[in-house]
C-alpha cells in the first residue's frame, strides 16, 4: 500500500475557538492509482492534500507513506519525504523565481540526488518547454509555468504526485492539454496521482474519486 490515511483530524484556530477542517478521514491509495478529490469549497480537500504531502501535521490520526507514519517524523525527516517520495503541483506560485526554467525543472530531482538528464530532456521536449529552458519563470505564460511545475515534479520520479487544482488558473483548452500530459506521464512513471479538483470532467478521467463534505468522506 503506497498511502494509508487513518482517522485523520485537523483543526485550525478560528475566532470562536478551534475550527474543525478534517473530522476523521480514512483512505488508501496503491501505486500508480489516480484519485480525484472533490467537494465543496472549505470541505478540507487542500488540507488533506497538505497533510498527505508532509507539508502540515495532523492533530490526530495517521498518514503512512510506504508504511512510514510521516506525522511522527521530525521536520528534517518530513522534508526528506517531500523531497524523495512526493511531488506537489499547486495552482500557482509553484516555481522559484530566481532560477531559470531548466534549474526549476531539475531542482527537486537534484535535491534528492536523482537527476536523470536524459529523462529531463525528454520531459522538457514532450512538455513543449525545450525553447524555454533558459528563461525565468516570470517570462512565461501561466500554462507554460504550470507545465514547468509538472515537469519538475515528474523529473524527480516521485511515487506520489499531489496536485491541488493544477489547472484551475488555465483556460479549458490549455487545461486539457496539461492534464493529458500529466496523466500520460504519471502512468509512464507508475506514479500515483492524487488531484484536488472542482471539475466533474477531470474527475471522470481518474481511476477513482473521493467526495469530501464537511471534513468527512461522503
Amino acid at each position: 500500500m503506497l498511502l494509508r490515511v487513518t482517522d485523520l483530524v485537523k483543526t485550525f484556530p478560528g475566532p470562536d475557538g478551534p475550527l474543525p477542517i478534517l473530522n476523521g478521514i480514512s483512505m488508501k491509495m496503491t501505486a500508480g492509482e489516480t484519485l480525484a478529490l472533490t467537494g465543496e469549497s472549505g470541505s478540507g480537500k487542500s488540507t488533506l492534500l497538505h497533510l498527505v504531502g508532509g507539508l502540515d501535521q495532523p492533530d490526530t490520526g495517521l498518514v503512512e507513506i510506504d508504511g512510514t507514519d510521516i506525522g511522527a517524523l521530525d521536520d528534517a525527516a518530513r522534508a526528506a519525504v517531500r523531497r524523495d517520495k512526493v511531488g506537489v503541483v499547486f495552482q500557482q506560485f509553484n516555481l522559484i523565481p530566481s532560477l531559470t526554467v531548466a534549474s526549476n525543472v531539475a531542482f527537486q530531482a537534484r535535491l534528492g540526488g536523482r537527476e536523470d538528464k536524459v529523462w529531463i530532456k525528454d520531459l522538457a521536449t514532450r512538455m513543449g518547454l525545450a525553447e524555454q529552458m533558459s528563461k525565468y519563470p516570470e517570462q512565461l505564460s501561466g500554462g507554460q509555468q504550470q507545465r514547468v511545475a509538472i515537469a519538475r515534479t515528474l523529473a524527480a520520479r516521485p511515487a506520489l504526485i499531489l496536485a491541488d487544482e493544477p489547472t484551475g488558473n488555465l483556460d479549458e483548452v490549455t487545461a486539457d492539454s496539461v492534464l493529458n500530459l500529466m496523466l500520460e506521464l504519471a502512468a509512464e512513471t507508475q506514479a500515483a496521482l492524487l488531484m484536488v479538483t472542482h471539475s466533474e470532467r477531470l474527475a471522470e478521467r481518474m481511476d477513482r474519486r473521493l467526495y469530501l463534505r464537511a471534513g468527512r468522506v461522503a
Binding site: G53, L55, D75, A76, R78, A79, A80, R82, R83, D84, V88, F90, F93, N94, L95, I96, P97, S98, F107, Q108, L111, G112, R152
Partner: peptide, 16 residues
C-alpha cells in the same frame, strides 16, 4: 515567502 515556499515544499526544512 512566495520565493521560499516552493523551495520548502520541495524538501527543505524551515531551519535550513
Amino acid at each position: 515567502l512566495p520565493q521560499l515556499a516552493p523551495v520548502w515544499a520541495q524538501g527543505l526544512t524551515r531551519a535550513q
